[in-house]
Design a protein around this nucleic acid. Structure first.
Lengths: 307, 307
DNA sequence: AACACATTTCGGAAATTCCCGAAGTAATCA
DNA sequence: TGATTACTTCGGGAATTTCCGAAATGTGTT
């Protein structure tokens, strides 16, 4: 096989099919007929000498090799986007596709600088298209390292050499329990650590044992990196867990959740920007990082004033 | 502009032209007519909206943007090669283009594991084509980081986070002066540091002040990363400097160079393999690294036995 | 068994790409 | 000044690519 110029098109088509989860779903997006899609896919498989996916009436499923090739294709297409950004920068134009990652449940945080930064950046560089990906910190670190993402925003407790970290803002984290939980009645008052440490905690895997140490627990009863999943476990009444207040508020208002001892159990998650070290970042990436930092400062100033 | 599939071909052509140093020289290598080359280049320039090079009877010269775009193109083409290696590995075949870098003047070193490793690797993976680049350590570090090279072999005194270092072998370094140098007559005997430190040293920039410290010198009289250039300065009679004995030997035999106090001024350069950290290295890269290590062990064993 | 659905195969028309040679231009060399 | 070199422009034919629709295939569903 030879990765020739034409193969880029095949890879792009493959990537879209995977993203859509099947030929049929990709058809309107690729805007070509079903027969063409089928032909391109078998062409790609022939070139690679690999079966990439099972398909047919039974449904669409990537083979193991298909999944790996998909990751490799994303890295390559990421490199193409990076080239595009760099070429645009040489023309003193900001254009191309900026790929960035963020963790979920930051949308409802009114202190998040992301919306403001995106608005400003969009006005400054209307030619730049954004590709946003919602993912876990660990996965985003990987993707920034291998070029699939240009940058990512989230809490990154580990410090990976090869990445640059820039502090951005903090998000408050409160400890919550459900109305059906034994602690619910006494939640608003003082709750000693000794009591807490006997509870079952739904912890975040990506924070390591940070949460456990704070609550003096030996181990987590459950670990979920997803906020929605964690909220579900807490709402079940079997677990306590940390949530961002802005996310928990609707349930607190509805009487389904209560914050446990807000005086004593406040922690903060430090949100950072990560970018790849070494590879001379395209100007667009720098511009966006800059916008993020400016927005973060504005938000924090506004917050202080309103207090 | 859009980086479309076709543009990869244009970039490849551009890269070849730059490597050849002109349209005319690239013509036989690309195997297409002069008119086609000209058309492709203006097509690329139009797409990018940039003038990439000056050409004409006056000679070929990259513009500033052209040079930057060339680097960006190399990174992109490097990513394509990497994809190719990864795709080949999924098929359990070792194929594609392996890009590796080395410093000059290791060819004449009979203790270098490179020739043996390349021979073995070539038999093991005949489908893999090698792209070899001779460069300075600093530049190779950069190129491994940004994906233009898969690995490099050389002395890397700095430890850059984001790179993996594997020790490979050591190269002896002797201190030399020319027959026209004041020290020549007494070179073979004991030469105190106090005398040496008054000499003018042709040092290697990439070693920092490592050589200077050894000789107790405040600063280098000249710095050249190139062995040939350093040899030239030493042969001029105005400088002393370190050279690998295998490289200096022909001049020593011809009475033009002499090694200074070999008993006391022996140093070693530790050659290492560098690869990129994090990006899951293609199996081919790992296989080649492995071959290098095996060859290094064999060479060192053979050396010990012959002593 | 009949049907619906997702994909594949096939043939072919339209569009595009590839690349050449001939003629032209501009700068240097003799 | 004229020859030479290095590239550019233009026209056009051959080859390839692109993509469609019609028919075929195979597999779950009813």
């Amino acid at each position: 096989m030879q990765v020739q110029d034409t193969d880029l098109k095949l890879l792009r088509i493959f990537e879209t099919i995977v993203r859509c989860g099947g030929f049929a779903a990709a058809q309107p997006i690729l805007n070509i007929g079903a027969s063409s899609i089928s032909e391109y896919m078998s062409q790609l498989e022939t070139r690679l000498g690999l079966r990439l996916c099972e398909r047919g009436r039974a449904g669409f499923r990537l083979t193991e090799e298909g999944a790996e090739l998909h990751a490799a294709a994303q890295r390559l297409l990421g490199a193409v986007d990076t080239f595009h950004l760099e070429a645009g920068a040489l023309r003193n134009q900001l254009c191309g596709v900026l790929r960035f990652g963020m963790i979920e449940a930051t949308l409802t945080d009114k202190y998040s600088p992301l919306p403001a930064a995106i608005r400003e950046f969009g006005q400054m560089a209307p030619e730049v298209r954004l590709h946003v990906q919602i993912d876990t910190p660990g996965s985003m670190e990987q993707h920034v390292l291998d070029g699939r993402l240009h940058l990512a925003v989230g809490p990154f407790p580990a410090r990976i050499p090869g990445l640059d970290y820039v502090p951005l803002y903090r998000e408050e984290q409160g400890l919550y329990c459900a109305s059906t939980h034994p602690l619910y009645e006494r939640a608003s008052g003082r709750v000693p650590v000794a009591v807490l440490s006997k509870q079952r905690l739904a912890a975040r895997a990506y924070l390591g044992n940070q949460e456990l140490k704070l609550l003096r627990m030996p181990q987590a009863a459950a670990s979920v990196d997803n906020v929605e999943g964690r909220a579900m476990l807490i709402l079940s009444g079997n677990y306590i867990g940390f949530l961002p207040p802005h996310y928990a508020q609707p349930w607190v208002d509805g009487g389904l959740l209560s914050r446990i001892d807000p005086e004593h159990y406040v922690t903060h998650l430090d949100f950072q920007i990560i970018t790849r070290k070494g590879g001379e970042s395209a100007r667009v990436v720098l511009a966006f990082c800059n916008q993020l930092q400016v927005a973060a400062k504005q938000v924090s100033r506004a917050t202080r004033n309103s207090k």
